[in-house]
Design a protein around this nucleic acid. Sequence first.
DNA 1: CTCCTGGTTA
DNA 2: TAACCGGGAG
Length: 216
Amino acid sequence: MSQADTILGMYEAMHAALGDSDWWPGETPFEISIGAILTQNTNWTNVEKAIDNLKNADLLSPKAMHDLDIHELAELIRPAGYYNIKARRIFNFLKFLKNEVSYNLLALKEYSLENVRPKILGVNGIGPETADAILLYALDFPTFVVDAYTARLAHRHGLAFEGIDYHELQSLFMDVLPQDVAMYNEYHALIVRIGKDWCKKKQGLCDTCPLKHFLE
DNA sequence: CTCCTGGTTA
DNA sequence: TAACCGGGAG
């Protein structure tokens, strides 16, 4: 089976077994963007607690959050871990929104992907995965999100070497898949679900995994 | 105890 | 390349 057939086939197998993921969890593009920063190397259940704190404080808008003292912000997002660093990163992102689009996040949709991606990557604390998550899930740009789960799954299925570079791994998928926002959205979501429940770090539960037929 | 939808700094 | 950031859940 060719590499392209494997990548396409895995998508079909995951979707058939798990169904639609309805990602990203979040009511607004701004909430999705903040969630993307908060979930860096962090369990989503912890991120939910932080987002609930922000919601209860009525702070899920760029301007309201920017006007907040950074220490108060850090305290509110404490359950998500790395809270001091993440408060700074969120603040950097808010400053970017203020300067670039006057807090109007959706105005970034008027940019071209090639133009806006480097701008978001220029924010200290936003790396390639977080940037792509914001671009795909908050702004509907056709960019494929890869993460630690993607690398692990690709490695275990013989698609990539361990420690493959972010953009090489991304190209592996984007060179094969149709340029389709909905598919990029669903594919990454399915990979995360597989990663959490089957393709675990220490030992994969391959015998019951929906992707077991794609092992070498 | 390990792991979590990373990224920056030294 | 490695240290660092970190609370919460299993």
